[in-house]
Amino acid sequence: MLLCAGALLPTSLIAGELTQYQASYDILRKGKNHGEAVRELKKLSDNNYELTYHSNIEWMIFSDSREETSKFTYKDGKVTPHHYNMVRTGTGPDKDYKIDFDTQNKVVTSSTSEYPLKCEWTDEFQDAISYQVQVREGLKKGETNFSFPLIDKKGNRRDYNFEVTGTEMISLPIGNVEAIKVKRLYDNDKRQALAWFAPEMDYMLVRMWKGEKGMEQFEVQMNSFTVTQPVAAPAAVADKSDASVEAL
């Protein structure tokens, strides 16, 4: 059973807070399901949140399981990351690394380095998944271009740039969704990344597509979505046929 579009979110949210939720996704390659992913946002305390993204992929002899966690503050529409962790197991070497953003001393530290990273501090820093929350907040304001400085696992600064290319109706396991299409801008045209965010679902990420040299690498499609925070009134329930309605 799936929630219909009009009941996916509480009718009134506390101003200045993020919607807490759990969303599940199918991970596809050439139309075939090769894994699953779960994205969850929780409120920890006033202005403090935790976003997790856990995925499992099996494809031929390749396997990949990873969990990413971002702890951040959200205030006045701005996401400020404080801690990021990624654990990966599967084919090839396992990985486990952490990045901390010390906003008071304005330094970034990594579990792979003994000393603070040699990067010029900016209050605009995002981590590998917190920026997705900031994209959603920008879309709510009608913004069409985004640029975020990120710190990657090697401790290097990388600028992530995006632009809105339009809106379109897409078909997903959860139903038909009218979504805003966002394109990541690379330095060359060898890689492509697209994401779709649904305004009716509080601008949730409902589909993602990545490719290289025009060839699909994988696609992610939402198959379920649940608001986990208390709501004033119970949500209506409808079957899949009535449902209409996300990482880069």
Rank of each mutant, 00 (worst) to 15 (best):
G16M: 06
L139V: 09
I151L: 09
V108W: 01
S147A: 12
D102W: 05
R136N: 12
V107S: 07
L44K: 14
M204E: 07
A236M: 14
G175Q: 03
N188A: 10
M1K: 09
E216Y: 08
V227Q: 15
V107I: 15
F72Q: 10
G214K: 12
D102C: 05
A179H: 11
R158E: 11
R207I: 02
G211C: 03
T103V: 07
T89E: 13
F225E: 09
D242Y: 08
G155P: 03
T226F: 12
C4W: 10
S12L: 12
F148Q: 03
G142H: 05
D239V: 09
E143W: 02
T73G: 14
V38T: 15
D94M: 12
V220P: 01
E246R: 08
G142I: 08
Q132M: 15
W59K: 07
T165P: 00
S130C: 07
G77N: 09
S110K: 06
Q192S: 15
K32L: 09
G6A: 08
F148P: 02
A23E: 03
S147Y: 04
A238L: 01
A233D: 14
M222N: 09
Q134C: 05
R184Q: 15
M60D: 11
S55D: 06
A7W: 06
L172M: 06
S24I: 01
K75S: 13
S24Q: 10
L3Y: 04
D64C: 13
A198E: 13
E58A: 14
T11I: 00
E124M: 06
I170S: 12
Y203K: 02
D152I: 03
S241L: 00
R66A: 04
Q192G: 10
E58M: 05
F197I: 05
